[in-house]
Computed example of a mutant assay.
Amino acid sequence: MQSNPVRIGTRGSPLALAQAHEVRDRLAAALGETAPPFEIVVIKTSGDRILDRPLSEVGGKGLFTKEIEEALIAGDIDFAVHSSKDMPTLLPAGLVLDHFLPREDVRDVFISTRHGSLAALPAGAVVGTASLRRQALVKRLRPDLEVVTYRGNVQSRLRKLEAGEVDATLLALAGLNRLGLQEVVTEILPLGDFPPAVGQGAIGIESRAGDERVHALLAAIHDPHTGVCLAAERSLLDALDGSCRTPIAGHATLGADGTLQLYGLILTPDGAVAHDGHVAGRAADARALGAGLGARLKDLGGPDFFAAHPGA
């Protein structure tokens, strides 16, 4: 007799669905004949409905997870697939984010139909992005540009660009790779100038704490390397009280010798003031390393750094 399907919760954007299908396909391949049937359940979130305002004004990145997490808590789905960079560090009681797929490319890209690079944009050109981090990084490098809030899924942002609403936009290379849209990339931005958001490029899987059946399934596709890096990055973000109201970048890498390297950056929304730092240590100390670097950056910024610059 066929068992009940394992229900995978996801947002309904093309990228979210591509990520959910990747998780399903990896589970089916890893489990082989023992794989249960899977059902993808699309859940519309507040973040998908509110498109006329910056997320920083209406509740932050949790707007992309609230309804999905409610379904998870209620038992309407068995686990949820997320872009890790959309996940707040504080999860609802009883939920965990501790399974990850192998990480994609973490870099940002510049896209324009008329200009070959960010450096080539003329003064006063308009760059559209929904990310406060990207806005701040653009202004840090090119204070002569106009940066505007630019919401919507990948395809709608590309359509707006084609229609001339902005001169250029910035997106994550990982998402374009997963959608097979690499051909739209004009310039891959160097990590030195554009360090990524915490969790960028990593698909995270959220589940109920103590659900041993689901955790046993997810263990078959979990990438420990990515898990260690995300533990460090999310600990950094947590120490900074980070949300999408705050321009923060963080990127961890794990060397073949087991050494974890973590870089962190905080900026004011106008990009005029920035503090960064680096730490290295054992993979086993990932969370402590992240917390320590976060505390150091917070000290560098001073008590008013975040309070004085609400996500403008």
Score class of each variant (00 low, 15 high):
Ile221Asn: 00
Leu236Arg: 01
Asp257Ser: 13
Glu206Ala: 15
Asp193Trp: 09
Val214Ser: 14
Gly255Val: 07
Val198Asp: 04
Leu254Gly: 02
Ala232His: 01
Gly242Leu: 08
Ala202Phe: 09
Leu265Thr: 11
Gly204Gln: 04
Glu187Asp: 04
Ala197Cys: 13
Asp241Cys: 11
Val184Ser: 07
Ser207Phe: 02
Thr253Met: 03
Ala249Val: 10
Ile188Gly: 01
Ala249Ile: 00
Gly227Cys: 08
Pro195Gly: 03
Val198Trp: 01
Ala209Phe: 15
Val228Cys: 12
Pro196Met: 06
Gly192Val: 10
Leu218Gly: 00
Asp257Arg: 00
Ile188Glu: 14
Pro247Trp: 03
Pro196Val: 11
His251Phe: 09
Arg234Met: 13
Arg234Leu: 15
Leu217Ile: 06
Ser235Cys: 11
Glu206Gln: 12
Leu267Arg: 00
Ile221Phe: 07
Ile266Cys: 06
Leu265Gln: 02
Pro196Arg: 12
Asp257Met: 05
Gly250Cys: 11
Ser207Gln: 07
Pro269Gly: 03
Ala239Ile: 13
Leu191Ser: 13
Ala232Gln: 03
Val184Cys: 01
Glu212Val: 15
Asp223Ser: 15
Tyr263Phe: 09
Asp257Lys: 13
Gly250Met: 04
Asp241Thr: 09
Glu183Asp: 10
Gly210Leu: 07
Ala232Val: 05
Ile205Arg: 11
Pro269Ser: 01
Gly255Phe: 02
Ile248Asn: 02
Leu191Met: 07
Asp238Phe: 10
Leu217Val: 09
Gly201Val: 08
Arg234Pro: 04
Leu237Trp: 13
Ala232Trp: 01
Leu265Glu: 06
Ala220Met: 11
Gly210Gln: 06
Tyr263Ile: 04
His215Glu: 12
Leu260Ala: 03
Ala216Asp: 14
Leu260Ser: 03
Gly227Ile: 08
Ile266Asp: 01
Cys244Ala: 13
Ala197Pro: 00
Thr253Gly: 06
Thr259Lys: 12
Thr226Trp: 06
Leu237Arg: 15
Val185Phe: 03
Ala256His: 11
Gly192Asn: 12
His225Thr: 10
Pro195Asn: 13
Phe194Val: 03
Asp238Glu: 15
Leu217Arg: 05
